[in-house]
Every structure is written in C-alpha cells, then in structure tokens.
Nucleic acid binder design. Structure first.
Length: 104
DNA sequence: GCTTTGACTCTCG
DNA sequence: TCGAGAGCCAAAG
C-alpha cells in the first residue's frame, strides 16, 4: 500500500469535531515522516473523501491547507472546533490520539 | 538516481 | 514568547 493511502486510511478514523497532528499520523504509520504526511495531503488524491482539515500542527496551530487556511478553519469550526488566531482552542481536549495501524 | 520541495517538528538564543 | 536553523522523509522532477 502506498504511503499516501495509509495516510488516507488513518485520517478517516479521526472522529468529527476532533483534530490530530501530522506527527501523530506519522506515528500511526510507524515512522516519523511528518513532512511527507503534509506533502502527501497537499496533493492528496482523495480530496473530497478525506477529512484532511482535521490535521493540525503539533503545537495546536492550524498549519496550512491546499484550498487556503481560511477554508480549513471554516470547516473545523463547522464541526465544533474553535480556532483563535490560527490556533486550536483547548487543543489538548480536541486532540485525537491515533491508534497505530502499521507497526514499524 | 540524485536533487528539490513542503499543509512539519525540535532545539536554541 | 518568538523567530531562525537544522533535521526529517516520501514524492515529484
């Protein structure tokens, strides 16, 4: 299975109204390809299907979005995730720890 | 195949 | 608290 497809599968597991980090996604993959995760999502082939907007930076910052950060924020807030100045409020509570699907 | 490119993360001053 | 620098990895050129 391709690297990006694993990401796709993992990201789908994030429940609505919760967020996760690039690091956590990479961790679920069993590696530390934080940047590769973002890179894969950037040109993500599953754009409408995968909720890539639920992925944020490890420090709670929103990060970026292929269609624009504002769009990402809007989608998150629509799901109940409050965002202030590009950062997720109560990030620790919103954070969803991904299970390790793929062992190293 | 080697080089470049990011929606990243960590460390240090 | 904030910014710069280095390290990191897969994909695309």
């Amino acid at each position: 299975m391709r690297f990006s497809e694993k990401i796709y599968k993992i990201v789908k597991k994030i429940p609505k109204g919760r967020v996760s980090t690039y690091k956590s996604v990479a961790g679920a993959l069993g590696c530390k390809a934080y940047r590769a995760v973002g890179n894969a999502l950037n040109k993500n082939p599953y754009w409408p299907k995968v909720c890539c907007h639920r992925i944020v930076c490890s420090d709670g910052k929103v990060g970026g979005f292929a269609r624009g950060v504002k769009e990402k924020v809007r989608l998150l807030e629509k799901e109940g995730v409050r965002i202030k100045k590009g950062k997720v409020l109560s990030f620790e509570k919103m954070f969803y720890k991904l299970p390790k699907l793929y062992k190293h």
